[in-house]
């Protein structure tokens, strides 16, 4: 099973939509890899630089409510995946984006607002990182020498999809 975790990209805003994650003008690409340079290109967020080092290093995104709203485009999880980001942790997700993540064997992790607030405290740490343990159902947040654990509450089906490596393999085996 693939390893989840690494440096964190904090996106401190509600309602980050799929057009911001990958604009429609790039949907004419027909391989996932071609999407790579366009990650978060239209994101409206003060101080955020889509081409900056934080975006390049990130393996996990932490954000607020309703992440991934808007279009059904799976190009949104794909552009994250080809940039090495395989997990998003947020207060809530739009349904299609969340399903797309699990369908691709990636993790869309929902945590209550107070826990997300706590994780955002690490946004100041230059070395913030998160380890995700799907089987153990917990995440470990680290930064500036301190460390905190949070329990996950992932639905068994979502967990099964992540473990199976995605929905196509799962469905092919079962239906």
């Amino acid at each position: 099973m693939k390893r989840f975790g690494g440096p964190v990209l904090f996106l401190d805003r509600d309602d980050i939509n799929t057009d911001e994650i990958i604009p429609a003008r790039y949907l004419t690409e027909i391989t996932k890899g071609d999407l790579k340079p366009y990650i978060l290109e239209d994101l409206k967020l003060t101080g955020f630089d889509p081409k900056g080092p934080k975006t390049k290093e990130a393996r996990v995104i932490v954000s607020r409510a309703n992440f991934g709203c808007g279009s059904s485009r799976e190009h949104a999880p794909w552009v994250l995946e080809v940039n090495g980001i395989t997990a998003v942790i947020a207060e809530s997700f739009a349904r299609i984006f969340r399903q797309n993540m699990f369908n691709c064997g990636m993790a869309a992790i929902e945590l209550p607002k107070d826990k997300i607030d706590k994780i955002f405290h690490y946004a100041e740490c230059s070395d913030a990182s998160i380890e995700i343990d799907i089987e153990g159902q917990q995440i470990i947040v680290k930064g500036s020498g301190s460390e905190e654990k949070f329990q996950l509450d992932m639905s068994p089906f979502d967990k099964a999809l992540v473990m199976a490596g995605g929905w196509v393999d799962y469905a092919d085996r079962n239906y």
């Binding site: 059904s72 799976e74 299609i96 691709c104 196509v168």
Partner: peptide, 14 residues
């Protein structure tokens, strides 16, 4: 319901 490409792929196949 709107779905992503993977759901669509499984829908097409199965």
């Amino acid at each position: 319901a709107g779905v992503g490409t993977t759901d669509l792929e499984v829908g097409i196949l199965k």
